[in-house]
Write a protein that binds this DNA or RNA. Sequence first.
DNA 1: GCAAATTAATGATTTATTCAAG
DNA 2: CTTGAATAAATCATTAATTTGC
Lengths: 212, 212
Amino acid sequence: MGSMKVHQLARGFWEHEPSLSLGCKRLRPLAPKLANTDSVASFDLKSFIRPESGPRKLGSSDEKKDSHQVETHPGGTRWNPTQEQIGILEMLYRGGMRTPNAQQIEQITAQLGRYGKIEGKNVFYWFQNHKARERQKQKRNSLGLSHSPRTPGTITSISLDSMGEVERDEDSPYKRKCRSWAFECLELEEIRSCREEGDRTLELFPLHPEGR
Amino acid sequence: MGSMKVHQLARGFWEHEPSLSLGCKRLRPLAPKLANTDSVASFDLKSFIRPESGPRKLGSSDEKKDSHQVETHPGGTRWNPTQEQIGILEMLYRGGMRTPNAQQIEQITAQLGRYGKIEGKNVFYWFQNHKARERQKQKRNSLGLSHSPRTPGTITSISLDSMGEVERDEDSPYKRKCRSWAFECLELEEIRSCREEGDRTLELFPLHPEGR
DNA sequence: GCAAATTAATGATTTATTCAAG
DNA sequence: CTTGAATAAATCATTAATTTGC
């Protein structure tokens, strides 16, 4: 139904990009872990059962396996983005995209799908998480340094000028836009990972009916 | 200069594989899909970040998804539950349902659909909101009265025993279960609602984020 | 050098807040 | 004011990096 969706408004222009990594997203420089007193305690069955160990040859037909990390997720694992996908997403983010709507998500997903398995929700989540984490990183920085908000060295000069007017979210909290995704479809494939027969599941993959 | 950089980078990504595959699950082409003949053009940041936002004035927009727009909103905006729907939902809630999963949502939606227009997300939201508001109401009560957390008199005696096994959320915060809904589908019907005739949209959002 | 044990990142969910329609 | 809708914050859960003991 409907609801009218308004489109997001544009605004703003630029913003200092948080970090230029692009390639080393995964590398974590350091970060003095703060108060990591929380007990580990996660040494249970988890370490025994290796989810991806299952051969799982089901759809091995014409699926051209890239010998990359893409792999078809047997059914229970989470999305593991490839470098290309991350690169594109970050590019979009830097371009100003913050909360893509359903249409945008669909398109992005379609494109990123060429580099590996991906679903719309992954894109949605990625933006949610990235936005939130950039925000908290920024906050942490501003608090910790309390001054010189300048990005540390190597200020990239990428200007993306051809972007024309991008719609900015400005990171401003709450700016009511339109919905950014859609439910309803409820695919069974999705659901199945939920709670299937416990027994066999135990062996194939952890399957988290409920955490602790 | 800088922009060049980005573009080249992007191009690298896009050109990687000019294949025509839409790769995704079963996404319908929802916008005039570009022929993707020229690899680069098939995926332009601009079009992503700004689907058709900005100045789409001038009525050219007829080419949007045909949208027989059907149902919903005869001018309507948000879901307006009927008494029957509310009744059933509350019954389910009292029965213990708190965060229905995709399957359940689907079924509930199907049933409630007999009493009026409804979508999966409405059901989802209803539970979210109802749960949250019951909780805050309870908190307010316990604070205001400082005791007797019991529900105020007239405890409804509807027992709903026939519910069989409902999944209990127990109101316990964070109890990781399984996913409760699914994205991905991004049905056109959903998306379409995002933007309709523009005039209204334009005035819906101001140029400035007006501080909430 | 390698594989188990840690730790940092980050994907995925749920809860809390906020906005705005009616 | 009530409540549907949407976003942000908090948090759980899993995976990759990195460290450590041989």
